[in-house]
Simulated scan of single mutants.
Amino acid sequence: MAAEREARERTASGATAAPRSRNRLDQPKLPGRRLLPEWDPEAFGRFSERIARFLGTGRFIVWMTVVVVVWVLWNVFAPRDLRFDNYPFIFLTLMLSLQASYAAPLILLAQNRQDDRDRVNLEQDRKQNERSIADTEYLTREIATLRIGLGEVATRDWIRSELQDLVKELEEHRVDGHRVFPSEANRGRDTDDL
């Protein structure tokens, strides 16, 4: 009470008030107490995958069978004072149910993690396929451009045929056994006519 009165008097007299404790939006909130224990989800996921991998092996089935057989034999043939689970084997049923109730969620967790990995791999494969398709389309366009460019380039056979046509034309314009260009042959005729 006295502290509040002093604060009011300071505010009334022009002094600044004591700073209030309020949440600042520009700073992260301090972690509070948690009721539940904290664990690393990755470590727990790896642990669940190891268990799921073990539960899916023949070794687990063999060990489980051995435990159940020893349990039943012990509780049937051991002296009455040492038996801990008599004939309907209710405790064995409880233990097997408990094991199954923990195994099922762990297996589901491992499957979910595998699904997540598969989804990431599928996404990477899809992106790789898109890049491959883009590269293939680019190369196809380049090859088409080269074919168009080669269509305009003189080939050896085309040059040979053009040269043969020129040779035939020159042979047609022979004057007096000499090969003469057609323009020279025309000039000669023009001078003879004068």
Rank of each mutant, 00 (worst) to 15 (best):
W39L: 13
D157L: 09
P79W: 11
E38Y: 09
S161I: 02
P41F: 08
V70D: 00
D116C: 08
R46Y: 12
L35T: 14
G32S: 10
N121H: 03
A43Q: 07
Y87D: 13
T57L: 11
V67P: 00
A144W: 14
S161M: 02
L96E: 01
D115H: 05
D81Y: 15
L94N: 14
D135V: 02
R113L: 05
D125E: 13
R156Q: 12
T145V: 01
I51T: 06
A154M: 10
I159V: 09
A43E: 12
R160E: 06
L150A: 04
G56D: 08
S161W: 02
D125K: 10
F47W: 05
N75S: 05
I61F: 13
N75C: 05
A103M: 08
R141D: 00
R33D: 11
T57V: 14
A103C: 05
S97N: 03
F91H: 03
R160M: 06
Y138R: 11
L94D: 09
V67Q: 04
D157E: 15
D81L: 15
L122G: 02
R147Q: 11
S48D: 11
E152T: 06
E49T: 00
L35C: 15
R156M: 11
T65Q: 06
K127A: 15
A110R: 03
I133F: 08
F47T: 09
R53T: 08
V70I: 10
A103V: 02
F84R: 03
F54V: 01
F89Q: 13
A104K: 13
Q114I: 00
T140A: 07
P41W: 11
W39T: 12
L82Y: 11
L109G: 04
Q124A: 15
I148G: 01
L96I: 06
N112V: 10
R160D: 06
R46F: 10
D135L: 04
R53A: 04
G58R: 13
R113D: 07
F89G: 08
F47D: 05
R80A: 01
W71Q: 04
R126E: 10
V76Y: 07
S132E: 08
L106G: 03
I133E: 07
Q99S: 04
G56E: 09
Y102I: 10
W71M: 06
L150M: 12
A100W: 03
Q128W: 05
S161L: 05
N86G: 07
V120A: 14
Q124T: 11
W74N: 01
W74D: 05
D118I: 12
L98I: 09
M95P: 00
I143A: 02
D85S: 03
L94E: 13
P105V: 10
T155L: 04
L36K: 08
S161G: 02
A110S: 14
R126L: 06
W74Q: 01
G151S: 12
L146W: 12
R113F: 05
F77E: 08
K127D: 15
E42T: 11
L106A: 06
I90V: 12
R160A: 07
F89I: 11
